[in-house]
Nucleic acid binder design. Structure first.
Length: 758
RNA sequence: GAGUCUAUAGCUCAGUUGGCUAGAGCGCUUCGUUGACAUCGAAGAGGUCAGAGGUUCGAGUCCUCUUAGACUCACCA
């Protein structure tokens, strides 16, 4: 053995595990009652386009659980995968595309889809390599990718089932629309930022209003006041006058208006504000937009049309000032919605979208969590989770991007001639108009092959199963919805689709599903608790009646040595692959767990990784010492029995080290079971280094062969206890001992978890 | 606006159901290298456990308030 542990052989250790197939269980044909139940985990699927970051290295917690349960004798299965990550991926792709001076509008959707597909395939393999590099005991025979046809098939079946069950609907309500990304977002995908803006007081004839968005006054449909506001009581029912256009609009009363804000009078612009939209619905006001999906203004006045909101605001204010209608301007700090992806301001726009009714889906989840049939750890997240589930809003599942499966809905253009179409001609011209106007100038096939997007008004008729000809009018001019699924609609079904659940006929589900579902454990960063974990549970109960996992375990984010979030702009990002190359995977793994409290931030630094690497090296050298000693004993005494400890012949220090070992076994086992991994590693670290090495080994120096048994026992037991945390070095040492001493277990990974002697 | 969390050694943090002289890693001081390891060993300095009050035989640990920070949720124009 070298005097240093060399982590560069880690990949050969990994292939030992893979060859042994201990992490790729086959399902017993005739299960016995005495069999231990399977322990299964679905890996939170990394984005296929993304190289790994430290967050992915946190899968180490799942790896610890898998390896621990394997050693306890359970069949274990940890299922890896990759997510196409709709918007995320398209965002990254478009950024690259922009470098070549192109944009998504230069391509029809089929071409664009193929380009993104190729882009993702290049990156997907890198991901798998990195997961292996960190030693994760994944079952690669069960790897899945979210765009596999069999997975998509089940996802579409779920869509159809939701439709059959009346849980699916289209609606025209105000959505969070990012004009930069060109798509709507769900409420969860919105960030809020505090901004310093201005509140403009405008003269609306008999009444004055205050607004932060003067550029939308052109599509105001009313002015609202609070019914309890004495100042304006007389004015309700009269008309206000929009400046610049001089259009007359009614003054109405509604509870939603705050008396104390601004002038107490609110201009109502249902198309561009959620509160206004609500008031508009109540009072049956018209919904007229002045911002296109591209972000440009229209339906205003010639000076403003075509501008973007920011410029439009400045121009409007200028015109208002000239007209003497701007009463005053005061600074205002308020929160605005921004796109979580590109950080541009979200425009609330009325766009037809597809929604899932979530209240009925949330009900069984709430029940299960409250009855503790789904455990949430740490407990404090339980309340947050329940709050969210209990106040859940309907889920907008449609996205206006290309990368992902399209919704399985088909429109007959002849039945719905007001459908808006965007397509690109062969000479690269983008055409945009309703079908009514387009059908006179263009052949249907040209539209179809160059199709970019279609927007179907809310009252359009559609078919959920693809018809060749329209059953109503016989037309062949049928197009599929161009909206794609929210990525989470697919990944929310991940535990079901990957295990082979059959939505249409559950009895025909794959045996994997029957054996491994519900899975045992789900660990993830708390930031996707609602995005992902919540949706998986809703789908799990909806489709199977059971939770997809018995335990939800949440960990925190990895920060730098100063407790700051890692980000590219700060330049404090530590790349897991770099760490592995420099210090070895075990050092990184231990650093991510050692001394970390459940769900508290994990502060990581080179210093910490280095000291963990030193620990790994200490283990290596202690093993080397024991090996040297034992070799010598065997040489002098070929019949030496190293595997039975003669308890009558022990010195006090031998008894002490064995007692401490038992103590460590109990403590580590208990702490892993309670998910206190940080403490488990501290106990191991302290025992192995500061007791076994610093004290006991020193005490044995100079003694004869009788200490061989105790030394070997303590070493082997420690290695086993350490294995779930640092699998490479422990397996590497074990393999050398196995050959030398003819140990019975082929791998430490498949050996039994230590038991106490007393 | 509502809610959650955090405040312990110079730095980053552990400290499960309250119980003996409050711990680790890094950093610092002094000494040490003849069966593994200098990626090492021994000894040591360093904390009014944010502040105030309370419960208790006993509180870093439970309760209340104050201060400072972090985060989540939310339709204030």
């Amino acid at each position: 053995m070298d005097s240093r542990y060399d982590p560069t052989n880690e990949s050969s250790i990994y292939s030992l595990w893979q060859k042994s197939k201990i992490f790729s269980p086959s399902i017993p044909k005739h299960p016995k009652k005495t069999d231990k139940p399977p322990f299964s985990i679905i890996l939170p699927l990394p984005n296929a386009n993304d190289p790994m970051h430290m967050g992915h290295a946190m899968f180490v917690i799942e790896d610890i659980m898998v390896r621990f349960h394997k050693m306890l004798g359970h069949p274990v299965m940890w299922l890896p995968g990759a997510d196409h990550a709709g918007i995320e991926t398209q965002f990254v792709f478009e950024k690259n595309l922009a470098k070549t001076g192109q944009s998504r509008f230069d391509f029809d959707r089929n071409t664009l889809y193929k380009m993104i597909w190729d882009f993702v395939e290049e990156n997907r393999k890198l991901n798998q390599f990195q997961l292996k590099q960190l030693g994760f005991a994944l079952d690669w025979s069960r790897y899945h990718y979210s765009l596999e046809p069999s997975i998509i098939k089940q996802v579409l079946s779920t869509f159809k089932k939701l439709h059959r069950d009346g849980l699916l609907y289209r609606d025209d309500r105000i959505v969070n629309y990012c004009t930069h990304c060109g798509t709507a977002f769900s409420d969860l995908e919105i960030d809020h930022q505090e901004r310093s803006d201005f509140l403009y007081y405008l003269d609306y004839g008999p009444i004055s209003i205050a607004t932060t968005r003067p550029e939308t006054i052109f599509v105001d449909v009313a002015v609202a006041v609070n019914p309890k506001d004495k100042r304006y009581k007389k004015l309700v029912g009269q008309t206000a006058i929009i400046p610049l256009t001089k259009k007359q609009i009614p003054i109405i009363a509604d509870d939603l208006v705050e008396k104390d804000f601004g002038t107490g009078a609110l201009k109502i612009t249902p198309a561009h504000d959620t509160t206004d939209f609500e008031i508009g619905q109540k009072h049956k006001l018209a919904l007229k937009s002045c911002i296109k999906h591209t972000g440009q203004m229209y339906n205003t006045i010639p000076e403003i049309d075509g501008l973007y909101p920011k410029q439009a605001r400045a121009k409007t204010i200028e015109l208002l000032q000239k007209a003497g209608k701007l009463i005053k301007t005061e600074p205002l700090t308020h929160t605005v919605s921004v796109c979580y992806r590109c950080k541009n301001i979200i425009e609330p726009l009325p766009v037809p979208q597809w929604y899932v009714k979530t209240t009925p889906l949330a009900k069984p989840v709430i029940k299960s969590v409250k009855a503790n049939l789904t455990h949430i750890f740490p407990l404090r997240f339980r309340k947050v989770y329940l709050d969210w589930m209990e106040n859940i809003r309907d889920w907008n599942i449609s996205r206006q991007n290309v990368w992902g499966p399209r919704l399985p809905a088909w429109y007959c253009l002849d039945c719905n001639p007001s459908i808006q179409l965007n397509f690109i001609t062969k000479d690269k011209k983008v055409i945009s108009d309703t079908y009514t106007s387009l059908k006179k100038k263009f052949d249907f096939n040209i539209i179809k092959s160059g199709l970019q997007t279609l927007t179907a008004p809310i009252n359009s008729t559609y078919f959920i199963d693809k018809p060749n000809t329209c059953p109503k009018c016989g037309s062949k001019h049928i197009l599929q919805e161009t909206d794609t699924f929210d990525t989470w609609f697919l990944s929310g079904q991940w535990p079901l689709t990957t295990l082979g659940f059959n939505v249409e006929d559950p009895a025909k589900s794959h045996p994997d599903f029957n054996y491994f579902y519900p899975t045992s454990f789900m660990d993830t960063l708390w930031d996707i608790l609602f995005f992902w974990v919540g949706r998986m549970q809703m789908f799990g109960f909806y489709l199977t009646g059971h939770t997809p996992f018995k335990t939800i375990h949440l960990h925190a984010k990895v920060t730098d040595s100063k407790g700051q979030k890692m980000s590219k702009s700060k330049g404090n990002v530590i790349n897991p692959s770099d760490v592995v190359e420099k210090y070895g995977a075990d050092a990184l793994r231990f650093a991510l767990v050692y001394g970390v409290a459940p769900a508290s931030d994990i502060s990581l630094s080179d210093k910490k990784i280095e000291s963990m690497r030193n620990f790994v090296n200490k283990i290596w050298n202690a093993s080397r010492f024991v090996t040297i000693i034992i070799d010598k004993f065997i040489q002098d005494n070929p019949n030496l029995d190293l595997f039975t400890i003669d308890k009558t012949n022990l010195k006090p220090e031998d008894k002490k080290v064995l007692k401490e070992l038992d103590h460590t076994i109990n403590s580590v086992t208990a702490k892993i079971k309670k998910y206190h991994f940080g403490q488990a590693t501290e106990v191991l670290y302290a025992y192995f280094w500061h007791y076994f090495c610093d004290i006991y080994i020193e005490q044995t120096k100079g003694r004869g062969p009788e200490v061989g048994g105790v030394l070997l026992h303590c070493l082997l037991t420690s290695l086993k206890l350490l294995h779930p945390f640092i699998p490479f070095v422990t397996e590497s040492i074990y393999q050398q001992l196995r050959i030398k001493l003819k140990l019975t277990d082929d791998l430490i990974a498949s050996s039994s978890w230590p038991k106490t002697q007393t």
